[in-house]
């Protein structure tokens, strides 16, 4: 390859990577197709869309900035309870504004905890995120006059969307389309973010957090911003979940949910935008059909799957797909921004 061509190609790859690929409308067409094809399964479809949104928020911190957290459900739960408590106590039940509030409260909790926690690394950070979430869960349990305690709050009186479209638990058409639109908007935001210079600097933090201060990057501040945005989106996911189901419970901020979303993202492929889609759908469809019939076998299979992913497919289903795709093509473009499994730099 000539010097000129190598440079020009790299420049073009960087200049074009944010462009919309030809296949990118496909997931959205499929989602709309699902709406018309499976009117009886829109409840499940809505649940999947919310989960994708939640996994997408995790992808921002985990896949792009490389922060391993076991406490991301904290923000999901905070968003859900924001919507739930406002509606249940007759304070506010207009869907769009309460959803925005859920996002703001989630972001605020993310900012507050992020500023304090993100100074630590490794096991300490893992434990701090986990304990913060557990703390919130216990607080939710204690303040049962407000939160309904262990039983949660049900039959939330959510007002019709835009004053016209009812949220019906039996025919969740409104929920499905509403969640789809919110997911799309959040996705566009995240997509813009990860291809921006800010997103590039997040990948720098992920790839080598020790180098970043040596290029003058204020790492704690940038991580806090990323964490806040991600928490805001997680809060929106939680809020919309509460609206769609008309209830909240402590499970929204439990370790189960936090671990599950981590597993989904790893399954789909982290740091890849669409990993959240693939992972959430694969996980939820499998568990939908298997977990009720053979719960133990499902757990066994999931365990084996996780071991296989950790050992052989660090980049999940999408990573495997990319590998196959590259093998098929002679000249392979560099997949910018996606994390590689790597051996960490030796200490000092």
């Amino acid at each position: 390859m000539s010097e000129y061509r190598g440079g020009a190609q790299a420049r073009t790859a960087l200049a074009r990577r944010h462009r919309v690929r030809a296949w990118e409308p496909l997931p959205w067409i499929v989602a709309l197709g699902f709406f018309f094809a499976f009117p009886k399964h829109l409840g499940f479809g809505t649940e999947v869309l919310v989960t994708i949104l939640f996994a997408l928020s995790l992808d921002l911190v985990l896949g792009y900035a490389g922060i391993v957290t076991l406490g991301h459900a904290a923000f999901f739960g905070v968003g859900a309870y924001t919507v739930g408590m406002l509606a249940k106590h007759g304070l506010w039940n207009e869907p769009l504004t309460s959803l925005a509030l859920a996002g703001i409260v989630g972001a605020a909790v993310g900012l507050g905890s992020g500023l304090v926690l993100l100074r630590t690394r490794g096991l300490t950070l893992l434990m701090l995120t986990l304990c913060t979430m557990a703390l919130l869960e216990e607080a939710g349990n204690l303040a049962h006059t407000w939160t309904g305690g262990f039983d949660g709050l049900d039959s939330l009186p959510i007002a019709p969307l835009l004053g016209r479209f009812e949220f019906s638990p039996l025919y969740p058409t409104t929920q499905y389309l509403y969640v789809l639109v919110v997911l799309f908007l959040c996705f566009v935001f995240v997509r813009t973010l990860v291809y921006s210079p800010f997103g590039q600097s997040l990948t720098g933090i992920r790839e080598n957090i020790l180098r970043m201060p040596a290029v003058g990057a204020p790492v704690p501040r940038r991580l806090a911003v990323c964490y806040t945005l991600s928490a805001g989106i997680a809060g929106i996911a939680g809020g919309i979940w509460a609206q769609a189901n008309a209830y909240v419970n402590l499970g929204t901020l439990g370790l189960d949910r936090a671990a599950t979303v981590l597993i989904m993202l790893a399954l789909g492929g982290r740091g890849r935008l669409y990993g959240a889609f693939v992972g959430a759908i694969a996980y939820m469809v499998l568990s939908h059909f298997l977990s009720k019939i053979y719960p133990t076998a499902w757990q066994l299979g999931l365990g084996l799957l996780l071991v296989v992913i950790a050992l052989f497919a660090h980049n999940g289903i999408l990573g495997l797909g990319e590998t196959v795709w590259r093998r098929l093509r002679v000249s392979r473009p560099l997949n910018m921004g996606a994390p590689q499994h790597r051996t960490p730099n030796p200490p000092l």
Binding site: A10, R11, Q200, S201, G204, L210, V215, A217, R342, N345
Partner: peptide, 15 residues
């Protein structure tokens, strides 16, 4: 201490 998974251009771009 490089951003090993990124391209050379991206490494310099970050700085």
């Amino acid at each position: 201490r490089l951003f090993r998974g990124l391209s050379v251009l991206e490494n310099v771009y970050i700085a």
